[in-house]
Design a binder for these strands. Structure first.
Length: 288
DNA sequence: ACCCAGGCGGGCG
DNA sequence: CGCCCGCATGGG
């Protein structure tokens, strides 16, 4: 059994539940130990977290060695993040202070870029429960089935598999009006060369993503934050918008206005601040 | 029954 | 630019 000693606060539950890409297809069980199991392109990963001792253990099946499996888990769950430093940067006021103390240990995950992209294309004008439902249908229908040490796994669907599908077939997964977006993004993805965006700065990479039909301001920020790990990205959805307007701006504001406010308020780790505001607002059902 | 959800593109002024 | 609209579905 492999272990990771975690010196900063970690909550697998909050990390999983707060609407990040991993939650749309992984299996989570809370209990004496929180357990997360998920399929990757290389195999199967299982992570447990003892909430009393803060000890993390993991096991893996498939094309992993000791080092690559450890790196997969660390990266996915944000386990290398220095939470003292991050909290220090985003604990700017009373509201953030409450959010942090209530959501202590919530981490930003890092996910395969294509997986993140498809998940948030599906997420638009949708809710977390149904995003998960749709993602599982898409995985079941378009994901390649592979055998891994006696276990049958469904891989995440490739862009190619989705592009080759018809709108009608996609609609059988009840994706609704998103079918055309899925097909178009899948089609463009194959010549997109997503890796070059790692080297770009935030603004440039965002522009590249938004050149695809079906990827707008919010989805682009989600991809940059949870796919590329660009911590200055700040996705603005309906919850965040209400929260920022109600708590800070005290008036209605456009996304452009909100983005410029955010840039000034959290020049570092804005993405982390965003996730705490998002989940705290929802948990406490503040502002309706 | 009604309302809303991790939004987007398009059309308008 | 900002504002407004429709868009499929499933859960509350």
């Amino acid at each position: 059994m492999n272990r990771i000693m975690c010196e900063f606060p970690f909550s697998m539950r909050l990390t999983y539940e707060s609407g990040q890409p991993i939650a749309f297809h992984a299996e989570f069980k809370g209990g004496m130990e929180d357990t997360l199991e998920y399929v990757t392109e290389k195999g199967l990963i299982k992570v447990t977290h003892n909430t009393k001792t803060n000890e993390i253990k993991y096991s893996y099946l498939g094309d992993y060695g000791k080092a690559s499996a450890r790196s997969e888990v660390m990266k996915k769950l944000g386990l290398s993040h220095n939470m003292d430093c991050i909290y220090n940067k985003i604990d700017t006021d009373e509201f953030m202070h409450k959010s942090i103390s209530e959501l202590k240990g919530l981490r930003m995950t890092m996910n395969p870029v294509w997986e993140t992209t498809l998940s948030y294309v599906v997420s638009q004008f949708n809710n977390i429960k149904r995003i998960r439902l749709i993602m599982r249908r898409l995985i079941g229908k378009y994901g390649e089935e592979v055998e891994c040490r006696g276990r049958r796994l469904r891989l995440f669907p490739t862009a190619e598999a989705l592009e080759c599908s018809s709108i009608k077939e996609l609609m059988e997964c009840n994706v609704g009006f998103r079918a055309a977006y899925i097909k178009e993004v899948a089609s463009e993805w194959q010549s997109f060369n997503y890796e070059r965006l790692y080297k770009m700065d935030y603004a440039e990479a965002k522009e590249e993503l938004m050149s695809m039909r079906g990827i707008g301001d919010k989805v682009a920020d989600c991809i940059l934050l949870m796919g590329y790990g660009k911590m200055e990205a700040f996705p603005i959805d309906t919850w965040i918008k209400r929260a920022l307007e109600g708590i800070y701006l005290k008036k209605r504001a456009s996304n452009k206005e909100l983005h410029s406010f955010i840039e000034g308020k959290w020049p570092e780790y804005a993405g982390y601040a965003q996730q705490y505001i998002y989940w705290y607002s929802r948990q406490n059902k503040i502002l309706k």
